[in-house]
Nucleic acid binder design. Sequence first.
DNA 1: CTGACATATATCAACCCTATATAGGTGGGC
DNA 2: GCCCACCTATATAGGGTTGATATATGTCAG
Lengths: 181, 181
Amino acid sequence: MDAKTLCLGVLLRGEASGYEIKKAFEEGPFSHFHQTSFGSIYPALNALSAEGLITGRAQAQDKRPDKKLYSITPKGRSALISALKIEPAPDVMRSDFLFILSFAQFLPPRRVGHLIDQRIAWYREALERMESCACTNTVPAGAAFVRGMGIAVYRAAADYLEAHRAELIAEISESATLVAE
Amino acid sequence: MDAKTLCLGVLLRGEASGYEIKKAFEEGPFSHFHQTSFGSIYPALNALSAEGLITGRAQAQDKRPDKKLYSITPKGRSALISALKIEPAPDVMRSDFLFILSFAQFLPPRRVGHLIDQRIAWYREALERMESCACTNTVPAGAAFVRGMGIAVYRAAADYLEAHRAELIAEISESATLVAE
DNA sequence: CTGACATATATCAACCCTATATAGGTGGGC
DNA sequence: GCCCACCTATATAGGGTTGATATATGTCAG
């Protein structure tokens, strides 16, 4: 899924600036299953604009830098629908946290505990953000389904970490492969 | 987490070739939380070799191309342990599937159903692979913990998809925003 | 009144992924 | 028997993405 398609997807939900698109992937409705950076968003918006798939208008703001608000065009809408026809690549989870923890026996138990606590807090915070979104019954069916999946998966992750934290710490504390803090 | 650290992580578990490292991220014990490609593995192995963090030896094979088996050196081991001290980046899920499904109301219900079925099958298959790994009690504590987390999360995903498939299809079938197949 | 953080756009180097090349073995279908 | 698809195995080029940085201004806490 390239940056252009991702931007079109956000813009289908309504007018937005580059900064707002970034937020949609950072804390908004897309945050739990895709991400992008300014380095790909701004070039993508320029390309989409040149191809006539979106149109931009400048929005002067009080006590804020100007915004460039982009809207999807009918041509852009059909380009998106057509892009949705591709076979989706396999789902991918990327977690430095789990990579590090898979070598828990080489880490000080205190650090392992701290890492797990941090991650539980992170998942719980994300869950609150997803659940609090009061829009439950106004959201289109697809978005609601996807949001529910995010909640289910994040809850499973947080629950697992809470349930197995003590066990892991106990096991690595016993072991002799401990390294110095 | 850069490719070099990921390779060191695999090699800490034992001697391996570039191809085998790829497999560790594709279907092996790292598959559910990180991935790499040949395009990053081979240059990483060359760089690690030049830095003295790993050593390579050629392994002639019967009726197969030669392998280059790499082993981690003591220097490499401490470089890895030291790399594990960084603060892990936030966990990230990347799913074209969920991105597409979030626009389910613009897709033919038949395709939505097919996509979900495919994804359930994919998750169930991955689960079987993770669970069948009979090594449960011989694996180090960290690896077992991480494996359990993968199973918990994948099971939650598959269960959610199964539980809500019918509901989503019903909702988009009713809706008027249907597009032609 | 300073430092941290938010809004807002933009770019660049470093890195990573995808696709492709090479080369031979294995196994299924017709 | 032959072809096609797929597995083992290494390698690279090209294109795209990430992360850091630059710029400019406003807010808010200590």
